[in-house]
Simulated scan of single mutants.
Amino acid sequence: MHFEDRPYIREIQLKRDDIESFDVYPFSTPSVKELDFLEFHPDVTFFVGENGTGKSTLIEAIAVALGFNPEGGTKQSTFTTSRTHSDLHQYLKLIKSFKRPKDGYFLRAESFYNLATFMDDTGYLKGYGGKSLHEQSHGESFMATLTNKLHGNGLYIMDEPEAALSPARQMAAVSAIHQLVEENSQFIIATHSPILLAYPRSKIYQFSESGIYEVKYEDTEHYVVTKDFLNRHEQMMRILMEE
């Protein structure tokens, strides 16, 4: 594997001069309001932050700008259940490398049920292990997607993939992601999972009320809070349960 093979997407830039007002959604979202550009890691880039800071809004816009269905799936997934995505993708400039991915997927926890229904309706289940996603648990269907649908040499966008996964399966997901990275793949992932965030070949961007900035794993709130809770769980529970 050579570094020049990736990243497939090097950077995004916000076309700020084209935006009429930063007082309306999605431009009023804290992270978007302060965004100029973001550079991506050739292997994995994580977005982390509290709900409402804009990480899912931005990752959705990146996926749509790349040609993916806003509800998830491949670029050939043409179903629509409702139009809820923003127009942010129209204001993003994508800086790509000369190398194009041979595979791609947008895995979105929020609308994965709709994707599973589309797959059942079309009968195209071979890429998911040949079994209806609705006949599997949420976690099983996510893992079936990771291990069967993604073939490597790909650009994969994921929004909170840990939503359906137990801690053990989150660790299995890390293994699957690493295998795909070894097969010349690049990931952009919005997550709350301290397990996924531990993947070392990555860059972590913290989304906050003051904007977006790069952080080390050990400095993320996810790591600090989880470690503190596990080390002092009895004391923490007493504090949390106090009236």
Rank of each mutant, 00 (worst) to 15 (best):
142 F>E: 02
174 V>Y: 05
242 E>L: 07
11 E>D: 10
104 G>V: 04
108 R>F: 10
174 V>F: 06
89 H>W: 14
189 I>V: 03
28 S>R: 06
36 D>V: 07
154 G>A: 10
141 S>N: 06
60 E>K: 04
7 P>S: 06
168 A>M: 05
132 S>T: 12
15 K>Y: 14
40 F>S: 00
182 E>P: 11
191 T>Y: 07
194 P>E: 00
236 M>V: 14
52 G>E: 08
224 V>S: 09
25 Y>I: 06
178 H>M: 12
182 E>W: 12
66 L>F: 01
131 K>D: 02
167 P>D: 04
238 R>P: 05
211 G>C: 06
103 D>E: 07
49 G>P: 02
93 K>I: 01
239 I>K: 13
158 M>E: 01
116 A>E: 10
120 D>E: 10
92 L>S: 02
57 T>L: 10
176 A>W: 03
65 A>M: 00
69 N>C: 06
203 K>M: 07
182 E>S: 14
170 Q>P: 10
237 M>H: 11
39 E>V: 09
22 F>Y: 10
134 H>V: 13
102 K>M: 08
32 V>Q: 00
195 I>A: 08
7 P>W: 06
16 R>F: 11
60 E>P: 02
79 F>Y: 15
176 A>Y: 03
206 Q>Y: 04
11 E>V: 08
233 H>M: 09
85 H>Q: 11
216 K>G: 00
76 Q>T: 15
229 F>A: 11
76 Q>P: 07
232 R>W: 07
148 N>F: 03
138 H>W: 09
201 R>E: 15
103 D>H: 07
230 L>C: 10
149 K>C: 11
143 M>D: 01
118 F>E: 01
72 G>H: 01
127 G>K: 08
221 E>F: 10
78 T>P: 05
128 Y>H: 15
133 L>A: 13
109 A>V: 00
206 Q>N: 14
97 S>Y: 02
217 Y>T: 03
64 V>H: 12
59 I>W: 14
240 L>Q: 13
51 N>M: 08
64 V>I: 15
198 A>T: 08
11 E>Y: 09
167 P>W: 04
105 Y>N: 07
193 S>K: 00
34 E>W: 07
145 T>Q: 02
92 L>Q: 07
237 M>A: 11
27 F>H: 12
107 L>F: 02
17 D>Q: 14
185 S>N: 02
55 K>G: 05
34 E>Q: 15
23 D>K: 15
172 A>M: 08
204 I>W: 01
87 D>C: 07
192 H>C: 02
186 Q>V: 06
41 H>S: 13
132 S>N: 09
